[in-house]
Amino acid sequence: MNELKLYPIKCPQCGAPEVVRRGTRITPCERCGARLCLTEVHTPRYEVTSNLSAAQAAAMARAWMERQGKAGIIGRPELVFMPFHEICGRRVGVFERRVPERHRVYKERYDPSAGGTVVEPTYEYTQKEDTKVMVADVEHMTPAARAPWDLAMFDARAARRIAALRSFDLVEAQRRATVYAEERSPDATAQERFAKKDTEIVAASGRTLFFPFWSIPVQAEAGSYEIVVDGVSGNVIAWRMPETFRIPGLAWAALAVPGALALGQALHATLLGEAVIDPVVLFVVGVVGTVTALFRSNRPDWRIRSWPEAGAIPRFERGEG
């Protein structure tokens, strides 16, 4: 899908052969100058231009590390282009809905102090069945490929508003960056996102936008990790790095001592019958203490932690409410 496809066409006016690039819709004939229009067009592809150089991205990452109190050697930033599908159109349809309604009613109540009935206003809540005619705008931006990092903190729509677009040239882009391939077509994205029983999308237009990211490797004592900087705004949108545990493995190993003592005491009480503490309790405490100590002390004192963490940012899923 990521190949640069060229289409041979023939000018219907003068018969001159032409070659057009994927996504082209209107092109002039080089021989007779007639304007030619292709009736079947693939999704146009654009590159979101980045004004952030590699040095600026590295400086952003360095400043971020200083703020976080991290130390490491910053490597050479790598430019990565990630495809997003931008789908615009209008959703039209007629669907049923229930509208909550509040009615004011007056009820009679016997009031002993007044010696008779009084009328008091109150409210009744009902649901009215209604038909809603919908004509709404659709503007959807979604990643078209699986990124090695979580893109939850990347606001593609905001980046789209502040950046300029230019026609995407795959060959030229691959010379200076790693380009991720689209894993599905914009039509498939639109179908998955907007296929609903009561509504349909009309006047839809889809585009593939390639957003730039700077992937910056950082070498630290515990290992190498990565900081990802948004190529449009310069914000750090994701990182993967080692994190040291507060309690070192040696401290957990010390837990094995009371665990072993508890196990020995349980064995002693079982064999000789001189139990001060219930042997079952001692056995359970001993097993838990020893197993925990062996498990926790045999791991490294750090782990790779990534941000944004999975599930840390609530996401709206279709079908939920």
Partner: peptide
């Protein structure tokens, strides 16, 4: 880089 064997339909934009 390769050329597709069958191209799309082309229309001359003239009245």
């Amino acid at each position: 880089m390769r050329a597709e064997p069958s191209g799309p339909r082309v229309v001359v934009l003239r009245c």
